[in-house]
């Protein structure tokens, strides 16, 4: 629970007054925060509060309309080259896995390294097999995504993101679409990843995981961060009424 042993003091993501609108709807209302190299941040909050939108602005899947975001020293602008550079540094795991159904699991993983990082096919496959081994699903390499379980699919998706050797990993509710018995197998690999020193931004409702792994918990409500604290403080001594209500509701389950 204490500050994670891997965390450094170097900032890797700097957000300054980030705003986002969907048409007239103000989704992010000025987010200012800094993530340090190796930090694990858990983002929680009620549905529709802008959690997904916020982490998607970091790899520019959503465009922010005001403020600045700097990732690993590169400012996110509309310059396509910068966007593609940042996307190579930032891996993302989605709630619905979003694996490519027409490619085998192995090819799902090697596509990025071969096409974007210009790795040779054999080197990419070797690395992909090692990653699948690490995810404990080496035997599923030549199957298609539809032929494996949800938990296994999400681990392939994590391997696909890791194959690009990113510095930062974004997780948007990675276990929400899973059956209960598969949640822990995904959380296990995320835990292992956290211990390896990866910088991680995780949107999740898994409060046990948050308490154990996070350095910081950020609570979103209606497009602003209304509270952020280390897990111990966040759970045992919440300041805000909204936070108290949210914690009592989620811990009931």
């Amino acid at each position: 629970m204490a500050e994670n042993e891997n965390t450094t003091n170097d900032p890797i993501i700097i957000c300054e007054d980030v705003h986002k609108w969907f048409d007239d709807f103000h989704v992010l209302k000025g987010i200012t925060t800094t993530f340090k190299k190796g930090e694990k941040a858990v983002i929680c909050g009620p549905s529709g509060s802008g959690k997904s939108t916020f982490i998607r602005t970091i790899n520019h899947l959503e465009e922010h309309q005001r403020g600045t975001i700097i990732v690993d020293g590169i400012e996110l602008s509309n310059d396509l080259r910068n966007i593609n550079l940042i996307r190579q540094e930032v891996g993302m795991v989605f709630q619905q896995f979003n694996l490519f159904p027409h490619l085998t699991n192995l090819k799902n993983i090697t596509l990025g390294p071969i096409q974007v990082r210009k790795m040779s096919k054999s080197a990419a496959e070797e690395a992909a097999l090692a990653l699948l081994e690490r995810m404990d699903i080496a035997d599923q390499a030549y199957k298609y995504p539809a032929e494996i379980s949800g938990g296994q699919q999400q681990r392939v998706a994590i391997a696909r993101a890791l194959a690009m050797e990113p510095k930062i990993m974004l997780f948007d509710e990675p276990t929400s679409a899973l059956d209960p018995e598969m949640i822990s197998e995904v959380l296990d690999v995320m835990r292992e990843l956290a211990h390896s020193g990866m910088t991680m931004l995780v949107v999740t409702h898994e409060m046990g995981f948050a308490r154990e792994v996070a350095d910081r918990i950020m609570f979103f409500d209606e497009g602003v961060v209304i509270e952020e604290a280390a897990p111990a403080d966040f759970f045992d001594n919440p300041q805000h009424e909204r936070t108290k209500l949210f914690i009592s509701q989620t811990l009931q389950h």
Binding site: L61, R87, V90, G91, F94, G112, Q115, V116
Partner: peptide
């Protein structure tokens, strides 16, 4: 749309 997002997230360009 998740397919395109996943492809963009690994850094594939639009033509690819």
């Amino acid at each position: 749309p998740g397919q395109v997002e996943a492809a963009q997230a690994v850094g594939l360009t639009y033509p690819k």
